[in-house]
Amino acid sequence: MADFAQTLMTTLAVGSLYALIALGYTMVYGILKFINFAHSDIVVLGAWISFTLTRWLFPAVGLDAHNPDSPAPPLWLGASILIAAVVACSLIGFVIERFAYRPLRKAPRLNVLITAIGVSLLLQNLGQLSFMFGPSPQKMPALLSNVELWRLSLPSSGGARNVVIGLVDVMIVGTSAVLMIALEFLVFRTKIGTAMRAVSYDLEASALMGIPVDRIISYTFMLGSALAAAAGFLYALKYPGLNQPAHTTWVLLGLKAFVAAVIGGIGNVRGAVLGGFVIAAVEQFGAYYLSSSYRDVYVFALLIAILLVRPSGLLGSTVREKV
């Protein structure tokens, strides 16, 4: 019972991160029908920009960013860093779309895919340059002290055991929830969101409605990148040992989020969120109750299983068009 509760909490936190990242994959795929391989690198940028800003700003509030036992700064500092990372990454997302993908709008899908891989490699290697983030891992100073919010005593196999719910996990789940609700509102309740859904269904017909298609595509990239940046920030909050930008942990994180998008039904916004939590559940519960060495295997096994049963994902539509 105690183990279950603890694993569930981790699932919610990790699932939120997968969901945030998966949303970017799914929105871009929905509109341009290609996998934006560079998306996971935006997560990396989000994390590393947060780290860099934290290093800069700690002294400004009288703290030592290099001291691992430094107390956490006031909340507003973390919030400002989150906002700055989000803004920076949306601008980067805008630039990538504008200069790497837009010129290829009428090119074969494969060309765009290869370009995306190129952009991804470029970002990874730029990030490792010494005047950028450097080639070594870094320790993210604590932006938030992980205070204990609740301590529950629950029965466990070896007698009662305490389950601790900490502020960091709650902050991750809360921030993600706010972002996802805002996105849901934007996509399903606003004019811009309706235009996004229209463009993702039929680009040409949207243009005939007077929708400035290129601008809507830019917004979509910026939105996806903003969520990725938030995910990067929250990730650094939870896992302060930041790996260097080209490290495989990042690739794997992006890959799992992509799997979440596919499992939920690629192109489907709600599916991406569902997929994120499903992936996290399989991974965390599998790791805890079966064996933690196979945590990645569970995720990909689930992907295969779901694609066999529902090729278009859990919430993906099988029928696209009535002719």
Partner: peptide, 16 residues
């Protein structure tokens, strides 16, 4: 746009 409601389709006509 089959993925939108009839009303949303209609409103898109007035996008500009």
């Amino acid at each position: 746009f089959s993925n939108l409601t009839v009303e949303e389709n209609l409103n898109l006509g007035a996008f500009l």
